[in-house]
Amino acid sequence: MEEKDLVEQSKKGDEEAFRQLVEKYRGRVFNMALGMTRNTEIADDIAQEAFIRAYFGLPGFKHKAKFGTWLYRITINLIRDYMRKKERMPKLSIEEIKENPFNHQDEVIKREEEKTQAERRAFVRRFIRTLPEKYQIILTLRDIHELSYGEIVKILKISPGTVDSRLHRARRMLRKQIEPYLRRRV
């Protein structure tokens, strides 16, 4: 069954159709939340809430965008809500990141030896969390989840020009922070 049909069936209360939609998107929704929150429990809660909101919002869904795009928008809004609530918690500072894996020369060597691609990836992603919210979101959507410009435009409801400039600024900021480590080797 095509996605559009699954959506229509779900609107009529077909649980099996909705289950198929959940199976298709749960990974992406969860990973999107995980990328921003870095917390499995919270990411799972956000993913569940996103699907609940989608389920109850289905009667109002008119296929103006793809179901996936609509669902990502719901997820991003939930992530934003979470991040705003979380603002009272101290933001991860660049100093904390610096301290952790690259503080002592011995540890640097040790790390370099056992560093895997996954660790390097995790290291770079930790820097994203030091950026302002809107830059975190744009990098998550474009560079982590590789969504197209068109999808990002629809999800964030901003113009392609804004996507371009925001993404450009976000990447520049990220590079500036990682640059010293890149020169050593990440």
Binding site: N31, T40, E41
Partner: peptide
Amino acid sequence: EYRTIIGLLHQEKEQEPKPYFWER
């Protein structure tokens, strides 16, 4: 440098949410 950063950001493998996602 940009190529390295963007390459590292790309999602290699999606993590799975907690078990019994649909049932919950």
